[in-house]
Write a protein that binds this DNA or RNA. Structure first.
Ligand SMILES: [Mn+2]
Ligand SMILES: [Mn+2]
Ligand SMILES: [Zn+2]
Ligand SMILES: [Zn+2]
Lengths: 139, 139
DNA sequence: ACATCCATTAGAATAGTTCTAAATTACCGC
DNA sequence: GCGGTAATTTAGAACTATTCTAATGGATGT
């Protein structure tokens, strides 16, 4: 695929989500949506942008990650206090968290079948289920 | 139950967990372990201490909550980035999080039966399962 | 091209938590 | 009880992730 084709595809992705395809957003989207699922912090995205010699400020990285999240292109995952992971996989899935390595892996929702749920509080409905399997090196 | 009996019970609880029963720790424990399960932030604990006219600095609140957690008297729950909830229920349970009100409710682990788990990474074993049901006012 | 609105940016501000180092307190053996 | 020792408390500074501010720059539609 040509460089121009890739650019146009990304621009279409952003426009389809109601996000203007600026130079900075396209540069970050090119890295985020390269076909490999990622769980990344703002700082990791910023570092990646620097390595690509794309000049994107840290403030713009935060703005962009938040925009993409609102637009449904990313979702947030919170594991530890202290930092937010942005997840390029927006499908229905759960996570394995390696407590020693500090990294996340996706697992399909169907791999953790939940037979039934408790009664929810009066007038409330389910917005999302988060499941995290925390793992460590076997003793 | 007399005030002295209550004090002695709390002191025994702390000593049993390998934590020295200082004045500050006893004051915080008296409020935390009053029989009602709580999900509280450090600031909420500090405010409660002020209302009880116990003079406990914020640094000591953090030290104490972390000590109690290490000693197995509390556990941490992370929901949003930005702040840590300390949970006085250390048993096997999951949570309902009200996204609008920002508060947590306990649910027994048995109320969300998990039929099976995916294969874990080579050499890793399960340390804990976190399940959060996020709810909102029904549309 | 023009006007308008939206995005980008550096740097300051904010918020939750941890760190530092000095003063105080709990504990243990006598 | 008394003294020695190690653990705890504390105020304030430091740290970290994130958001805010306000000024500059860029995209879009006509
Ligand atoms: Mn980071
Ligand atoms: Mn708080
Ligand atoms: Zn994921
Ligand atoms: Zn709980």
């Amino acid at each position: 695929m040509s460089v121009k084709q890739k650019h146009d595809e990304l621009a279409a992705l952003l426009q389809g989500a109601g996000v203007r395809p600026t130079r900075q957003r396209l540069a970050l989207a090119a890295w985020l949506f390269d076909g490999h699922d990622k769980h990344v912090t703002a700082e990791q995205v910023h570092d990646a942008a620097l390595k690509m010699r794309a000049h994107v400020s840290l403030a713009t990285v935060y703005n962009t990650l938040n925009n993409f999240t609102t637009a449904g292109l990313l979702r947030q995952v919170v594991i530890d206090g202290g930092q937010i992971y942005f997840d390029t996989n927006t499908g229905d899935h759960y996570h394995i968290f390696d407590e020693e390595g500090g990294y996340l892996t996706d697992i399909p929702a169907a791999s953790v079948p939940i037979a039934r749920l408790p009664k929810l509080p009066q007038g409330k409905s389910l917005s999302r289920i988060d499941v995290v399997l925390r793992v460590r090196t076997s003793s």
